[in-house]
């Protein structure tokens, strides 16, 4: 198997505080890879570094064989490496349909057309509805995103992300705040979309992690503590100490 995303010696310092310390991470193409660890371990910071929302203090990042250490975040997204956010990221005043269309229209490139009517965007409606349906939001298509419950906002964010048809997804706690039924729906969706994609996800729900992921990296205090499949990682005494011992059983 080849490597889709690789970080070497990834380090981020905030005014002397090292949030991410010499992290080496390899995500295999086509795998679901989980990044877990206690709060404040540096997981979100890692995501910000990998997608260049933050500039690493040192280290290199390669994506699909290409050095992306110096690229801008929007460029990385256009290469097919798309992230979601820990705090749900939707466009609150746009409708659910419009939220997904904004993602679709970027791929087609009419987004600079300021002279065209908005009605032009209706050509994306069918495709947008398909993605909305996939995450179970069909009944809310014309609602403003702001009106959705927290779990549904997360689902909408996933729908918009999938609308970009990315090769690799970075999902930051995609199921936080979701009801159990939604967790199952989104788990199933992630498994389905992972068929020809690579996924790196941060998730606190350990049963989800155990079920979905091929490989797990455990992060604590900015450093990698352990790596392997669920059986290996969950037996590691350091992990039990740092992670499960910290109240995440």
């Amino acid at each position: 198997m080849s490597v889709m995303l690789e970080a070497r010696g990834l380090t981020k310092e905030f005014k002397g505080f090292v949030a991410v310390n010499r992290v080496d991470l390899r995500v295999e193409k086509g795998s679901i890879h989980a990044l877990i660890g206690p709060n404040g371990a540096g997981k979100t910071t890692c995501f910000n570094l990998l997608t260049k929302f933050l500039q690493p203090t040192s280290g290199t990042i390669t994506y699909d064989g290409r050095d992306i250490t110096r690229l801008a975040p929007a460029e990385i997204a256009r290469l097919g490496l798309v992230r979601s956010f820990q705090i749900s990221a939707v466009f609150p005043e746009l409708s659910v349909l419009q939220n997904v269309r904004v993602a679709l229209q970027r791929k087609r490139g009419e987004s600079y057309d300021f002279w065209r009517s908005e009605a032009f965007l209706r050509r994306y409606d069918d495709e947008a509805r398909h993605h909305i349906n996939e995450v179970g939001l069909s009944d809310f298509t014309d609602h403003r995103a702001a009106e959705l419950s927290y779990g549904r906002k997360r689902a909408l964010e996933i729908a918009a992300t999938l609308a970009l048809d990315p090769d690799m997804l970075l999902l930051d706690e995609p199921m936080a705040g979701m009801a159990q039924a939604d967790v199952e729906r989104i788990s199933a969706l992630i498994r389905r979309v992972a068929v020809n994609r690579t996924i790196l996800m941060v998730e606190h729900n350990l049963s989800v992690v155990a079920n979905l992921s091929d490989r797990i990296t455990v992060l604590a205090r900015g450093e990698i503590l352990a790596e392997g499949d669920y059986a290996t990682v969950s037996k590691n005494p350091d992990v039990i100490d740092a992670y499960i011992g910290a109240g995440h059983a």
Binding site: P73, V82, V102, A103, R106
Partner: peptide, 10 residues
């Protein structure tokens, strides 16, 4: 409405 999200969409 959400600049980081717009960036993450490319």
């Amino acid at each position: 409405e959400n600049e980081p999200r717009a960036i993450s969409l490319g």
